[in-house]
């Protein structure tokens, strides 16, 4: 038994429309890890490689101690992707009967309990469900597999605040078992603060930041000012953003606050600040790589 539910080493995947470059990361068992980054950053590609739906060009992906994608592993992983894996014409109540036999650990009683608890209309066709109901059905299908690892791709997109909160509650309930792990992607940073224990910021196919969420608030601050930045301050800053009126905002390490003049405002970094500035840093580096290639 390892302490990491997912270990990715030197993963590179290149396809026409997307790429991951030299990704190294781990997802600790017993915690909720949030994968965050702008649309198109590589979040879904990463999740699909964890699920074994995309084969790496180089590197390897280990899930629950085995190579990703094998049947034995897939039986221990529950998945919610953007498209539900139930046919549109199926009735909600028949879903378990139809797909349950595909999974060794399918728990039909639990599935029915969840369907009732989520208030899903049992007689409705799958394609007649609202977005929120579809996510809940997907989640019921994922949880009924009695997984150890739950992988959720943008589960809250299109959900109203009430449904988002219900989803977070379900995730926390799943996490009551210390052997359980959740990996979910989102582009809404605010969702991370009260749910995620660890965050991984992805941008332009690379991991821009990876760490426990509380450490991030201790480690970083935001400096805002206007005019010229000293060379040292510029070099120590992460993801410098300028606005049209000559003002700038940059993420700095808490230890570097002394590098800035007194007229610079230094504030606590929010999760949002860290995501934005690390994404900017990754974007600039990506551009530089692009220039070198050209």
């Amino acid at each position: 038994m390892t302490d990491d539910a997912v270990v990715i080493r030197q993963l590179s995947i290149r396809r026409d429309s997307f790429a991951l470059r030299d990704v190294d990361l781990s997802v600790p068992t017993g915690y909720v890890t949030g994968l965050v980054g702008p649309n198109g950053a590589g979040k879904t590609t990463l999740l699909k490689s964890v699920l074994g739906l995309l084969a790496p060009d180089t590197g390897d992906v280990t899930v629950l101690g085995d190579a990703a994608g094998g049947d034995a592993v897939n039986n221990r992983v529950g998945v919610v992707l953007d498209r539900i894996s139930a046919a549109p014409e199926w009735r909600v109540r028949s879903v378990g009967r139809r797909i349950g036999r595909l999974y060794h650990r399918w728990d039909e009683t639990f599935f029915r309990t969840l369907v009732a608890r989520f208030g899903l209309p049992e007689r409705n066709r799958v394609d007649a469900l609202s977005r929120g109901q579809t996510v809940k059905l997907s989640l019921a299908m994922a949880l009924a597999r009695r997984p150890e690892l739950l992988v959720l791709d943008e589960p809250t997109s299109g959900l109203d605040p009430v449904a988002r909160r219900e989803l977070a509650d379900i995730v926390r309930e799943f996490m009551l078992d210390p052997g359980h792990t959740v990996l979910f992607s989102t582009h809404i940073t605010a969702e991370l603060d009260d749910l995620a224990d660890r965050i991984i910021v992805v941008n332009d196919g690379t991991v821009a930041y990876d760490g426990m969420l509380h450490e991030l608030h201790e480690r970083f601050a935001v400096a805002r000012g206007s005019g010229a930045l000293s060379e040292r301050a510029r070099a120590s800053g992460i993801g410098l953003l300028s606005d049209s009126s000559g003002g700038y905002e940059v993420l700095i390490r808490s230890a570097d606050t002394a590098l800035f003049d007194a007229d610079v405002v230094i504030d606590d970094a929010s999760t949002d600040d860290v995501v934005v500035h690390f994404a900017e840093q990754a974007r600039v580096r990506g551009d530089q790589r692009g220039l070198v290639r050209a």
Binding site: Y31, D169, M175, L176, D194, D197, L213, H214
Partner: peptide, 19 residues
């Protein structure tokens, strides 16, 4: 209360209670 129970009850992350 167990870490995980309290986290679920207070609607906070596990690491928050752990700290």
């Amino acid at each position: 209360p167990s870490l995980r129970q309290l986290a679920a009850q207070l609607r906070v992350s596990i690491i928050t209670v752990t700290r």
